[in-house]
Simulated assay, not measured.
Amino acid sequence: MTDKAAPVDPRPIRTFGRVGGRSLSARQQALVEDLLPRLAVPEGLSDPRMLFPGAREVWLEIGFGGGEHLVEQARRHPEVGVIGCEPFIEGMAKALTGIEANGLTNVRLLMDDARPLVAALDEGCLDRVFILFPDPWRKKRQQKRRLIQPDFLASLYRACRKGARVRFATDVASYADEALGYFLGHGGFDWQAKSADDWRLAPADHVTTRYETKKLGDCAPVWFNFLAQ
């Protein structure tokens, strides 16, 4: 009798949970149908600078939630091109509302997992990256789905120029410990903390999000800032 090999699951590991949620308002639905296609990151993008002619830098925010941080950073820095990735339709609709309300022309959006995008980007094309409160996948058996993994950091490092700034934040203690270990273990990300306040206090340029105010984690927010070497 021949042993049969276990079937291989062809589905890629996702770094986010459920995608469905509350129904959109008529206005939000209209923005998703009309504005999102105009701002969508094209499939197979390799050079994000092509999306922002004349921009001084290109920034990437992975998992922008309700878009408060994304929209405000783009508003404060009109000379910068900002790409935001978010798989949840509710968050995308909220970001579109803020983009329209502020008349922003320096934002492009991807409603999907950020990993394939980062893997496809040209070497050294990102100047700044925000990864703020990604899904922590709290259960031990789920933690392989966490975004911060060695393979992802290798892709991210390649896409960052030398001197690019990377910010990671979480309010889950196990994720903070694990992520810091992976960043430092990579060897290409220089942790900028000089004292405990550098990771205990929100950076001066941070924009507080609705997620933070809910205090859903098991610890106070932890802020890790790195420079790509």
Rank of each mutant, 00 (worst) to 15 (best):
D113A: 08
D3Q: 15
R22D: 07
D112G: 13
D47A: 10
H186A: 11
K4V: 12
T97Q: 06
A193N: 00
A93C: 02
L156D: 01
A204K: 08
A173K: 08
V71H: 03
T97V: 06
R18H: 08
G81R: 01
A55V: 04
D190L: 15
L39T: 02
D9M: 09
L70Y: 06
R14D: 14
C85H: 06
A169C: 09
P136N: 06
S174M: 14
G65I: 00
R146W: 02
Q28T: 03
S23M: 14
Q73G: 12
E57F: 01
D9C: 10
F226C: 04
H69F: 07
E33D: 13
G66C: 10
Q143F: 13
R75N: 13
A119T: 00
D171R: 00
F88A: 12
Q28M: 06
W191I: 02
P42S: 05
A193P: 01
E33M: 09
A40G: 08
V166S: 02
R108T: 09
K94I: 12
D135R: 03
A26E: 14
Y175S: 05
G185P: 09
L31M: 03
G98D: 01
E86I: 02
L153A: 09
C85N: 04
F133C: 04
L39W: 05
Y175L: 07
G188K: 03
P203M: 08
R138W: 15
V80G: 06
E79C: 08
E33Y: 11
L60T: 00
G91N: 08
P221D: 01
L184R: 11
V166F: 00
P134S: 06
D151P: 10
A120H: 05
R210M: 10
F88V: 13
K139Q: 09
A164T: 08
M1L: 12
Y175P: 03
G188P: 05
R161L: 11
H206M: 10
L96I: 00
G91I: 07
A120Q: 05
V80W: 06
D47N: 11
I89C: 14
K162V: 15
V118G: 02
V71Q: 07
G81Q: 02
